[in-house]
Amino acid sequence: MTFQWTAVAAFLYGEIGVILVLCLPFISPLRWQKIFMFPLWSKMAVLWNKMFLTIIVLLIVLFLDAVREVRKYSSVHVNEKAANVNSSAFDHIQMKLFRSQRNLYLSGFSLFLWLVLRRTVTLLTQLAKEMASHAALETQVNDATEAAKKYMAENERLQEALSGKGDSKKKESTDATEEKLKEEVERLKAELQKTSNAFHKAKTEGAAVKKQSESLRREYDHLMKEFEQLQQRLNKAEDKKDL
């Protein structure tokens, strides 16, 4: 195996190991974020995108070269098999084909796992940020809940205090209403007494007027009788004169 493919194989094994470590369940994303925040990683983060693109380009070039080698030795393998050449040459071609296929798998899986590794690190970072924000939101919610409970308790105490004051005010207003009603009753009694006195006075005056009218009627009857008597006397006197 040449140096370049040895490096690709080592890179592939390293990718597999790193991905397995990143997938360990007992290491939380928050801990990975703390690890990624080390000064060493902070310095490497500046060159991370450039290094990622460079490795992508190298792996793509190696993958295309491996594809070319596989196609070349596959066609040669078919031709040599058809020509029935000696076994040593045929074995050599098979060895070349095997190595080219191995290199194809190494470069292909290295390229694929490199993309998976980049995506895994990105998702772990995002998940750690979401977990941190979720923890902060939970803390805020708990604080808000405690504050709301405290305000509700204070509100209940204020309502109880206001209800006590309201009862005393209601009692005072009831007493004032009773006093007003008593005053109104007294005033109505006084007016009723005045009306009763006026009625009795009017009744007395009516009785006096009735008595006066009776006396006037009797006086009128008496005068009428006297007038009739005088009229009769006058008529008799005139009759005597005529005779």
Rank of each mutant, 00 (worst) to 15 (best):
D65M: 04
S215V: 12
L62R: 00
R118W: 02
N155D: 08
K81W: 05
A45C: 02
S87V: 09
A190K: 15
L117R: 04
N79P: 01
L123P: 00
S215D: 13
R99Q: 06
D167W: 05
N142Y: 05
V21G: 03
W41N: 13
L64F: 05
A198G: 02
A237E: 06
M51E: 12
R187S: 07
L230V: 10
F38C: 08
L223H: 05
F3I: 09
N235G: 12
Q232N: 15
K170Q: 11
N142T: 08
S196I: 05
K150G: 09
A9I: 02
A190T: 08
I93M: 04
Q193N: 15
L47W: 06
G206D: 08
Q126N: 10
K240L: 15
N49V: 02
K211T: 13
F11W: 04
E160K: 14
L127K: 01
E214Y: 12
A89K: 12
S133P: 02
T195W: 14
K210T: 12
K240V: 14
E183A: 09
Q94G: 01
L20I: 06
E238M: 08
V67C: 06
T120E: 02
S215H: 08
N84E: 15
E186D: 12
L59D: 00
R217W: 09
T122V: 12
A147N: 07
E179W: 07
V141C: 09
A237H: 07
L192N: 13
F52W: 02
S168Q: 15
N235M: 10
R119G: 12
E184L: 15
L234D: 06
K34T: 13
L216G: 08
V78K: 10
R233K: 15
S88R: 12
W5H: 03
W5V: 01
G14R: 06
A45V: 03
F63G: 00
A207M: 04
F98T: 07
G108E: 00
D175F: 10
Q212I: 08
A161R: 14
R99E: 04
Y151V: 13
E186G: 01
A207P: 00
S173M: 10
D175T: 07
I19P: 00
N197H: 15
K81E: 10
W41P: 01
S215A: 14
P29T: 00
F199C: 11
E219S: 13
M95P: 00
K201G: 04
V116L: 07
L40R: 11
Q212D: 14
P39A: 03
L20Q: 14
R99K: 12
F98H: 07
T2A: 08
A161D: 11
V85H: 06
A202H: 11
S173C: 10
I16G: 00
E184A: 15
A208Y: 13
N142S: 09
F36C: 03
D143W: 03
A89T: 14
K182N: 11
D175E: 15
F109W: 04
A82N: 12
L62G: 00
K189C: 08
V85S: 06
R71E: 05
Q126A: 11
K236Y: 06
L115E: 03
D242H: 10
W41T: 10
L162T: 07
L123N: 13
K96R: 11
K210E: 14
S88L: 14
